[in-house]
Computed example of a mutant assay.
Amino acid sequence: MFVAPPGYQPVYNPRIPYVGPIYGGLRSGMSVYIQGVIPHEITRFNMNLQCGESEGSDIGFHFSPRFDNWDKVVFNSCQEGEWGSEEEIHNMPFSKGDAFEMVIIINQEGYQVTVNGQDLHTFNHRIPVERVNALQIGGDASIQTVNVIGGGNPAGDQIGGNLPVMDGQPIFKPPVPYTIVIPGGMSTKKTIVIRGMVPLGANRFSINFKVGSSGDIAFHLNPRVQERELVRNSFIGGSWETEEREISINPFLEGQYFDMSIRCGNQRFKVFVNGQHMCDFFHRFQNYNQIDTVELEGDVQISYVHF
């Protein structure tokens, strides 16, 4: 059975305060995705990307929204117990009682922060990013999902042969419908990770693995929300083939987030949702290495897509 390596496994509903490792450390090109809710009664919360899991570790990036008469967001770093100079903005992107999605994109310049799809601030590196290997969250926020995305997985050799191949940059909040070119085309062990939400009133949506030159759909994954069904099929040579509908779980409910990973194997696609195996789809299009695009369409909101 495929189990995502720790570096790609989301953390759900962590108890706050939370401290957890970033396997292999941070590198440019990686991102940290956090989804949660701001309580009505909140003073402040913080997120630290730090150089170790112990208290007193150096902090490469300190992020602290503070709710008072002068609402602001503070950014800083801490080395050898000494805080650096604060950077702050007074454009508070969080609202009490509301859900949020936050992404910290690590690039060569620093930490680029977006909240609910809007750029907030870039904090330049003060500590070499390669030293950063842990995430700490404290304060009053309610966190539902934490995921470290991208950068490969240097711990992979310790895990064995079940590694997914992840070689693309994550795409955050793409509009739907959306077509994505698969980096390098489809291959064995290549995995696509999709984080999204089924909006209220949704009817159906689909994820199509396609051969761009012919329009053939090698794998059509079609959650039908109102019917509570998950249809799988293929469209080859101008016609649909036999539908498959049996599933072990149905995670696609109105108003619910989902984390999906779809992995290509020699014989089949394996689909996992929220850490559980949902279904397999055996290859009907034998030259699956000709699959070069993924198409997202229908009633779904996408937080990010990552190959």
Rank of each mutant, 00 (worst) to 15 (best):
P6W: 10
Q286S: 13
G20S: 10
F209K: 11
V146H: 09
A99C: 09
F269P: 13
E88K: 05
N133P: 05
D98V: 00
R195K: 14
K270F: 11
G20K: 14
M197K: 15
G151C: 11
V176L: 12
N116F: 02
R195P: 00
A134K: 07
F75E: 01
E82S: 04
D58V: 02
G168D: 06
R66E: 01
F67G: 02
F269L: 15
I149L: 15
G212Y: 07
I16A: 07
V37W: 04
G36W: 02
N116C: 01
E130R: 11
G184I: 08
P177T: 03
F100H: 03
N107W: 03
S57A: 09
H125Q: 04
I16S: 06
D259Q: 14
S77I: 01
Q169V: 01
V176T: 08
V37A: 03
G150C: 09
E41C: 05
H40D: 07
P6Q: 10
F172M: 12
H283Y: 07
G152P: 10
N13R: 14
I143C: 11
N147C: 14
N162C: 11
D157W: 12
C279L: 15
D119T: 01
K210F: 03
N116E: 02
N48T: 00
I247C: 15
H283C: 11
N107M: 06
K72I: 01
Q118K: 08
G36C: 06
I192P: 07
F172R: 13
D299N: 12
N222M: 09
N133G: 05
V271P: 14
I38P: 08
G196A: 09
E244K: 15
D58Q: 05
N147E: 12
F269W: 14
R131F: 09
T188L: 05
G24A: 06
V11L: 12
G97S: 05
D280A: 10
M260D: 08
P175A: 07
S239T: 06
D280C: 13
G151K: 13
Q108D: 07
R195C: 12
N147H: 15
Q290F: 08
G201R: 06
S57H: 02
F272L: 13
N69L: 05
G298M: 10
T242C: 10
H125V: 04
F219N: 09
N203E: 04
V148N: 07
I192V: 14
V176S: 10
T43V: 06
N107S: 10
V294H: 08
E101T: 04
Y304C: 07
L230V: 08
H306W: 05
F75N: 02
N69Y: 04
C279Q: 13
I89F: 01
P174G: 12
Q267G: 09
Y33V: 03
T242P: 07
I262F: 14
E41N: 12
F100G: 01
G215R: 13
